[in-house]
Amino acid sequence: MSQFTRRSVLHLSAGLAASALVLCAAASQASAADKILLIINGALGDKSFFDSANRGIEMIKQKYGDKVETRVLEIGDDPTKWEPALLDASEKDWNLIIAGTYSISETLGEVAKQYPDKKYILYDATVPYQEGGFDNVYSIQYKQNEGSYLGGVLAASLLKSGKLPADAGTALGFLGGMDIPVINDFLVGYIAGAQSVSPDVKVAVSYAGSFTDAAKGKELGLAQYRSGVGIGFTAASQAGLGQLSAAKETGKFVLGVDSDQEAIFAESDPAIASQVISSVLKNVDVSLLQAYDLYAEGKLPFGSGKAVGLSEGAVGLVESGNMAKLATPDVLAAVKSAKEKIASGEIRVPTAFGMSTEQVAKLRESVRP
């Protein structure tokens, strides 16, 4: 073999080897799974909000299979542990870190600034994009006031229908986890929906001061029912489970939240399920899957956020189960009409976001039994 030919073969072999390495690297990169971490600043098992987020991760895994690697990390409700957990997660090789709630939003925002190459999804809250430094954060907020409006229409209509037991009570109730804007957004929408049916409706309002204290939730729920509340509405995560227990104990009714709580308790505690007239849905699961779909396509607009509601399927009202049994045709028609008018923009549901503390307090006082 001539020296020229030998050199050509060597160059060709080296070129082929380099090409093979590039192809292998590309194939490896293409086949590498997206690593997704969901951080729960509380605990699973609330049968509402956090469990819905967990379902969202399960939906992503089910749809994308081996293309994703997922993990859920429960870090508890102690705020002093949130920053260390987020910092630790950001040091690892997660491609996407997801966390939610108004309470953790400031902490996540500060951590995200320190790791500009990491990507974060914040749900049920937002960060101050106008201040800059949040180009790696996408936030999802929910128009829970729209779903709660439907809940208010249903609850007030049922009280008015006369189809509930005679001793069911004459007022509505609301149990919030904490007196904060996102929870008061449920309240504001609920009151507006109820007033559209009965302008003089009365609503007893309580806050547990916690999203985990089920005992406190039950205590407040019992107090409401004993004071004449016929249908309570809980927006309190695990603390709200206490109100469900109070409904079971008193034989009164309750409007669940975030997930279909009648269906969730149908087998484990039928006595609770029987008292859940419906649930105002906050479909965290659906919104997380929608966000990841965009992320997988490279289209998720980090550095911005979006508020999602009825039109996106992110909030709603359960219309099967007990609701279908209890609601008269007039009640069903009222809910349907409200839904259509919200979707068309004919009804603009008021929101707690932008309301002052004094304005919220005045609203609560105006409907106090």
Score class of each variant (00 low, 15 high):
G303N: 07
Q290G: 03
L294T: 02
D260T: 08
D258N: 08
I264E: 14
A266D: 02
P270V: 04
Y292L: 06
S274T: 04
K299H: 06
I272L: 09
Y292S: 08
Q275E: 08
V318L: 04
E262M: 12
E267S: 13
L300F: 12
A296H: 08
P301F: 07
S279D: 08
I277H: 12
V315W: 02
V284I: 10
A273V: 03
V315N: 03
L294Q: 15
D260L: 07
A296V: 02
P301D: 06
K299T: 01
S274E: 15
S311N: 14
V280T: 13
E262L: 00
E319N: 05
G321Y: 00
A266T: 05
S320Y: 00
A296Y: 09
G313C: 10
G316Y: 13
L289Y: 12
G313F: 13
A307T: 13
L310W: 04
D260K: 10
D260E: 08
V318Y: 00
E267M: 04
A314C: 06
G303K: 05
G303R: 05
K306I: 09
S311L: 11
A266E: 09
I277K: 11
L300Q: 11
V308N: 11
I272N: 05
Q261G: 09
L289C: 07
V308S: 14
S268E: 09
S287R: 12
D258G: 08
E297P: 01
G305D: 05
F265N: 12
N283R: 15
Q261I: 03
I272P: 04
K282S: 05
A296D: 10
S304E: 10
S311Y: 01
A271L: 09
E262Y: 00
L310E: 02
N283M: 11
S274L: 02
N283V: 01
A266K: 15
V308W: 13
I264S: 10
P270R: 11
E312W: 07
P301H: 07
S259D: 08
V276D: 11
S320I: 00
A314H: 11
D260Q: 10
A271F: 02
Y292C: 07
V315P: 01
D285G: 13
I272V: 14
E267R: 10
Y295D: 10
I277M: 12
V315A: 08
P301C: 09
S287M: 15
K299E: 13
V315T: 15
L288E: 06
D293F: 05
L294I: 01
A266F: 04
A263G: 03
I272W: 11
G316W: 12
E312L: 05
G313P: 06
D285T: 02
F265T: 02
I277P: 07
